[in-house]
Computed example of a mutant assay.
Amino acid sequence: MNDSIKIILVDDEILFRKGISFLLEREENIDVVFEASNGEELIAYLNQSATKPDIIIMDLKMPILNGVEATKIIRKNFPEIKIIALTSYDTKSFVANMIQIGAVAYLIKNSTPKDLLHTINQVFLKGFFYNENVLQTIKETIISSKKSKSNLEGSFLSPREIEILQLICMQKTTIEIAEELFLSPRTVEGHRNNLLLKTESRNIAGLVVYAIQNEIAVLTI
């Protein structure tokens, strides 16, 4: 399908990875285009293949090149690709670190298939998805180390940009934002791109973290 969600699975546990692949391939709107057992295999594929995924489901603890380091490389070289961290680790500091380096969603390995599919579809639709536990971690961990708000003085962000940023943090899609503000989707996209440039964020998840750090919005699910 041309409009299918292209997925790459990266996990060194072969049986677990094949189980996820089997689950995803049963979905009509999902296409698993590649599987890798470590970050090095993943980066090699991305550098060589013309087919880029929409989403990478990334294990974090892997040999050779782990998921944390691979995420940093992908965020720098392929910022349009969304990364869902899938791991056994759920400590607050670990979750916060993964969000800050570029993961747009975070799932624990004992999540249900329903949770995984929901997360994939939400990430594809909105650019990120944080469940209640991740939102709480962002509030508790990232706010505590927030940046100075001095860069928000004057006209750094326009009232309209702040309004759109707040709606993004409510996990609304571009079309939903456009309808709520009586704007065209193209106009909303323009404001969103300006927000990315002004805040030096690489993706929508980065905008959300920025908004929380600077107390522009309160995240809701």
Rank of each mutant, 00 (worst) to 15 (best):
M1T: 12
N2I: 09
S4I: 09
I5T: 08
I8S: 09
V10Q: 02
D12G: 02
D12V: 06
E13R: 08
R17A: 10
R17P: 05
L23Y: 08
L24G: 10
L24S: 10
E25S: 15
E27D: 13
E28K: 15
N29P: 07
D31E: 15
F34E: 13
A36E: 02
A36D: 07
A36K: 01
E40Q: 14
E41W: 02
I43D: 03
A44L: 09
A44M: 07
A44R: 13
S49E: 11
A50D: 15
K52T: 10
K52I: 13
K52F: 09
P53S: 06
D54H: 15
D54S: 11
I56Y: 02
L60M: 15
L60V: 13
M62D: 00
N66E: 06
G67Q: 05
E69F: 07
K72W: 07
I73W: 05
R75A: 13
F78A: 02
P79V: 08
E80R: 11
E80N: 09
I83G: 00
I84Y: 02
L86Y: 09
L86D: 00
S93K: 11
S93N: 12
F94W: 03
V95H: 07
N97Y: 14
I101Q: 04
G102L: 06
G102K: 04
V104K: 00
V104N: 03
A105Y: 00
K109M: 05
T112I: 08
P113H: 09
K114I: 13
D115W: 04
L117C: 06
H118C: 06
T119C: 14
T119H: 06
I120F: 07
N121G: 04
N121K: 15
Q122I: 01
Q122W: 04
G127I: 03
F128P: 00
F128Q: 01
N131M: 03
N131Y: 04
N131L: 05
V134Y: 07
V134I: 15
L135C: 15
T137W: 09
K139N: 15
E140C: 06
T141V: 12
T141E: 15
I143H: 11
S144G: 14
K147Q: 14
S148Q: 12
K149F: 10
K149N: 14
S150Y: 12
L152N: 05
L152S: 02
R160I: 13
I162R: 10
E163G: 02
I164C: 01
L165D: 03
Q166I: 01
I168E: 02
C169H: 02
Q171C: 06
Q171L: 10
T173G: 03
E176P: 00
I177G: 01
I177N: 01
A178P: 00
L181R: 06
F182N: 14
S184F: 02
S184I: 00
T187F: 10
T187E: 09
V188F: 00
N193H: 12
N194K: 13
N194P: 01
L195E: 02
L196G: 07
L197T: 13
L197E: 14
T199N: 06
R202Q: 11
A205P: 01
A205L: 04
V208D: 01
V209C: 07
Q213C: 12
N214C: 09
I216L: 15
A217L: 05
T220N: 12
